[in-house]
Amino acid sequence: MAQFDTVRSVGVGARAQIDEGLKAHMNKVYGLMSVAMLVTGGAAWAISGLSTTTNPADAVLQLPNGTLINSFGSAIYASPLKWVIMLAPLAMVFLFGAVINRLSAAAAQLYFYAYAALMGLSLSSIFLVFTGASIAQTFLITAIAFASLSLYGYLTKRDLAPMGAFLMMGLIGLIVAMIVNWFLQSDGLAFAISAIGVLIFAGLTAWDTQNIKNTYIQHAASMDQEWLGKAAIMGALNLYLDFINLFMFLLQFLGNRE
């Protein structure tokens, strides 16, 4: 593998420096991701609370589970604005990839956190659909699975690059299936999509972790601090997306609806 060849080609002292730098880099990646997760969770919880009411006089509509939605909730969940909220995170991801080279590391980090807050707005409806206990349980299971898969991706000597190409093709097929089922509303297809989604993002978690590690090692001799900061943010974004998607697909299996 290329990263091991890179490490072997340097002296013992330089190798130790690369190892130390890699640990610091991965700690920063996981730290950025963790803060983004807190921003997303906090935003989702707060917005769901602002969208509901216990006063029937303030309610604009009522969900099948009896939850009363106020005018703010109606605007973000039941009006055409919901399409903007659903698609805006996807647009921000593509825009981020296009502009990150023109942003400073500090600006890229701020963009990442703004994206996490917008993702929280997009996901806030889960608190209206699923019980809080099942959300917490699924989050804990996702965290354990994610940590195990990411650790495997970091420690394994196996080259996961071929698996990455297969997973990306599977992801494209998964998106197509989700669009089709948007119109079909098939419970059987929805179950299959959730199961395949869990497998794909489980694999991507390991693959992305190894890719972050390899990228650092391959550029260890020439990277500057600005590049390093941006690389950590992009790595954190990739792992953040893996975690969010893994959580959402698992929630379809494990979540108890209100």
Rank of each mutant, 00 (worst) to 15 (best):
L151Y: 13
L103A: 12
A105V: 12
A108Q: 09
L151F: 09
K157S: 15
A105C: 11
M168D: 00
T156S: 09
I179D: 07
I172S: 08
V129P: 00
L167R: 08
Q109I: 14
A145D: 02
A117G: 15
A133K: 12
Q109E: 15
M169W: 05
L151E: 10
R102I: 13
I100E: 10
A136E: 12
V129Q: 03
F183C: 02
V180Q: 01
I135A: 02
T138G: 08
M169R: 15
L151M: 08
F139H: 07
G173Q: 14
L110M: 11
T131G: 01
S125W: 15
A145F: 04
I135Q: 00
Y113W: 14
F146P: 08
I135L: 08
L171T: 02
S148M: 13
G170T: 03
A117D: 11
M168F: 14
L110T: 15
T142G: 13
Y154A: 14
L118S: 06
G132D: 13
F146Q: 07
A136N: 06
A133Y: 07
D159P: 06
S104P: 03
P162H: 09
L151I: 10
A145N: 00
L140H: 10
I141R: 05
T138R: 06
L118N: 06
L174W: 05
L174M: 09
I144R: 11
S125F: 15
V176K: 12
W182S: 15
Y152T: 10
A147R: 02
F130K: 05
G120A: 07
G173I: 05
A114C: 15
I175N: 07
N181A: 03
A133G: 10
I175L: 14
L160G: 05
V99T: 03
V99A: 01
L151T: 13
A136M: 13
G164I: 04
A143K: 03
L121C: 10
G153N: 11
L160S: 09
V129F: 04
T138V: 09
M119Q: 12
I172G: 04
L167K: 04
F183R: 11
G153P: 03
Q109V: 13
L149S: 02
Y115S: 00
L155I: 15
L121R: 00
Y154V: 10
A108K: 00
T131R: 00
I100D: 13
G132C: 05
S150M: 12
L118C: 10
A177S: 11
R158A: 10
F139P: 11
M169N: 14
D159W: 02
Q137H: 13
F130S: 05
A116D: 00
A143R: 02
V176M: 13
L118G: 11
A107E: 02
L174C: 00
F127R: 03
S148N: 01
G164P: 00
F130M: 02
T156M: 02
F112T: 03
G97F: 08
N181M: 01
Y152K: 04
L140G: 14
A161C: 05
A165W: 09
A106Q: 11
Y152W: 09
A136C: 05
